[in-house]
Design a protein around this nucleic acid. Structure first.
Length: 622
RNA sequence: GGGGCGGUAGCUCAAUUGGUUAGAGUACCGGACUGUCGAUCCGGUGGUUGCGGGUUCGAGUCCCGUCCGCCUCGCCA
């Protein structure tokens, strides 16, 4: 074949007169009979070819050019010349064209199911995934692949410069069925036993610290057999790291440096020092542990004021237990969010929709009041629950800073339900009000913050058992350690109040990284296991390797993991995680291109001592 | 596991209240054309309306079931 001398993205008018060779795909053809134009595409760009009988193309070549179709793969030799028909400003190579003197068709295409074209409407994702190799030819997808590559490279450079060792950890791992459901792999050697695919390399990286590795990093694949979402896949990638002989501050400093470097190198953006917020502050002000700070709309607890209002919904909520301690999940509360400009934009239809929306989170509904300018020119409460608030109008408006044109939305329920419901509502209102900038490198702004001081434990809603909020290897904050060790196992109040040494990085309402100082003391780790309901025997069965390792000289250590896919989503300005994964899976875990998962022959199952109880599928083996 | 939206030509979509032979754009095929650049013009091929049942004189349309894709709640230490 004619091996290329240049790519389709690099020829300029400075090359005019040169004889060159190009390889690529036919992006489009414009056939004028005795003059044929081809836009030739590769990853690097597009260059126009011209088959010109007056300049190098004989009758046979014209006939061959006439047959070229989109997505044929060709090699050409020709001369670079200035375009006769004028410049095409849309192309970087738009000043020149190639007068083709030799044409070789390297691969003739069948009629493709769709064309890798960013201009028109995209085919359904189903088709894009089934013919991923065509979808990935689109310049947009090539751009995202390149962005992802930049993230890999920038990451490796940064951590290399900071003394981290890249170490690979096993994919075939031990099942430790806390947390997410695991993918299982049957063992051939020992009948009836299984590996699990790792939800994360958490324990390996801790053991690497105990191994004296000092600083570890890995760009690793993690597996969680849970239902996907737009920003979640069962198989995803983490930037995983761990450091020895550090406390929280050193890790946070290292991570901020990483984020700053990444944004600078990938997006050209300078990230200012990150805000810090406690978990409690986040829940109080934003109703969520990953607040989106691109817009304000702070939530206020107005329970005390609401107690004075003669409105049954408020009264009922407060009666549920306003005497409980603050932040107790069953405490009755009334929460409000003031929406500037909402009086006009949030129509009755929209606010009625909010009631349906919060019902999805267990709340009864949303109360609404608007503030308008009365006939006397003074602020006046209007519609919704205005008549109930009217007797306290002045106090209410002062409390929340309400001005004419505002709408105030209320949710009254238990602390847990009201917080969740109004937190979700806040985000929906922001979207409805058009307060959320489009994501993307130019779209910013980038609102980073640290969320710290998470509770160590929370109660499982169904079983009532303690579960680790982060994971069971997270250490209490240093100043909490003694209280934790001293606390009786039935000392509900103390245990609930213990704050961990965990930290999350939140970007625009999305958790992009999370980590913690780890437990490096065997007794502390054993106590956590006990609180989580593991008997010493169970702890040993599942985590003996960790407990043993901790007893042979474990350095204090801490670490973090970034969700790489989500980082790339931010740089690419997409809200679809499948866009940033070369070969993604569907919501049912299917790979539409390879048709995985698939049935396997019985003998393969026998080898691993497995018998399928699934109903036989007609026409399928196994 | 629950809720919602969708599935019609290779692709993207349309099809009135259940009513004639299911249309358009694009791709593809054939023809014309020497300066286009999402080329243009003329002509043509192309359909098990996801699948299975049902209601009806008549179903793309209504009903039941099922499969697939997307969004979402649960779930995701």
């Amino acid at each position: 074949m004619l091996i290329r001398t240049h790519t389709c993205g690099e020829l300029r008018d400075s090359h005019v007169g040169q004889t060159i060779r190009l390889n690529g795909w036919v992006n489009s053809y414009r056939d004028h009979g005795n003059l044929v134009f081809i836009d030739l595409r590769d990853r690097f760009g597009i260059t126009q070819l011209v088959f010109d009988p007056d300049d190098g193309a004989d009758a046979a070549m014209m006939a061959a050019a006439d047959k070229l179709r989109n997505e044929d793969v060709v090699a050409i030799e020709g001369k670079v010349r200035v375009r006769i028909g004028g410049e095409n400003p849309k192309l970087a190579s738009g000043k020149i064209e190639i007068a083709v003197t030799t044409l070789r068709v390297l691969s003739k295409t069948d009629n493709p199911p769709f064309l890798p074209d960013d201009m028109g409407k995209l085919p359904s994702e189903e088709f894009r995934m089934a013919y991923r190799y065509i979808d990935l030819r689109r310049p947009r997808m090539q751009q995202i692949l390149a962005l992802r590559h930049k993230v890999y490279q920038s990451t490796r450079r940064y951590f290399d410069e900071n003394g981290f060792l890249e170490v690979e950890t096993p994919i075939l791992y031990k099942s430790t069925p806390e947390g997410a459901r695991e993918f299982l792999v049957p063992s051939r050697h020992v009948a009836g036993t299984f590996y699990a695919l790792p939800q994360s390399p958490q324990l390996f990286k801790q053991i690497l610290m105990i191994s004296g590795c000092d600083r570890y990093m890995q760009i690793c694949r993690c597996f969680r057999d849970e239902d996907p979402r737009a920003d979640r896949q069962a198989e995803f990638t983490q930037i995983d790291l761990e450091m020895s002989f550090v406390r929280r501050e050193q890790v946070m400093e290292m991570m901020e440096g990483f984020v700053r470097r990444l944004w600078k190198e990938v997006a050209g953006v300078d990230v200012p020092p990150m805000l810090r917020m406690t978990y409690r502050e986040a829940m109080e002000d934003y109703g969520i542990d990953r607040p989106d700070l691109r817009y304000d709309l702070k939530i206020r607890d107005i329970s005390e004021f609401a107690g004075k209002v003669d409105f049954a919904i408020f009264k009922n909520a407060l009666d549920k237990g306003n005497d409980r301690p603050p932040f107790n999940s069953k405490r009755g509360v009334v929460k409000a969010v003031r929406v500037p400009g909402g009086a006009e934009k949030l129509t009755r239809k929209i606010t009625d929709g909010y009631t349906e929306f919060v019902k999805g989170f267990g709340a009864g509904g949303v109360a609404v009041v608007k503030c308008i300018k009365g006939e006397d020119g003074q602020p006046k409460l209007d519609t919704g629950i205005a008549k109930f608030l009217e007797p306290h109008s002045q106090e209410f408006r002062t409390l929340l800073g309400v001005e004419p044109g505002d709408t105030v939305l209320f949710v009254a329920d238990t602390y847990a339900t009201a917080t969740k419901a109004i937190g979700e509502l806040r985000q929906k209102v922001a979207r409805d009000m058009g307060l959320v900038p489009k994501p993307g490198a130019e779209g910013g702004p980038w609102k980073f913050l640290w969320v710290v001081d998470f509770p160590m434990f929370e109660r499982n809603k169904e079983t009532g058992k303690w579960v680790a909020m982060h994971h069971p290897f997270t250490s209490p904050r240093d100043d909490q350690m003694q209280a934790f060790l001293d606390a009786g196992e039935d000392d509900e109040v103390t245990i609930e109040g213990i704050v961990s040494a965990g930290y999350d990085i939140v970007l625009n309402g999305q958790e992009i990284a999370g980590g913690s100082v780890r437990i490096h003391d065997r007794d502390v780790q054993s106590k956590v296991f006990r609180l989580l309901g593991l008997t010493p025997e169970q702890a040993k069965e599942k985590f003996s390797f960790l407990l043993e390792a901790l007893s042979y000289g474990a350095p204090p250590h801490a670490g973090v993991a970034f969700g790489l896919d989500r980082l790339v989503m931010n740089f690419a300005g997409t809200e679809n995680i499948r866009d940033v994964i070369a070969f993604p899976k569907t919501q049912t875990g299917a790979d539409l291109m390879t048709k995985a998962p698939s049935h396997v022959p019985d003998n393969q199952l026998t080898d691993v001592h497995i018998k399928s109880i699934a109903p036989a599928t007609p026409g399928s083996p196994g």
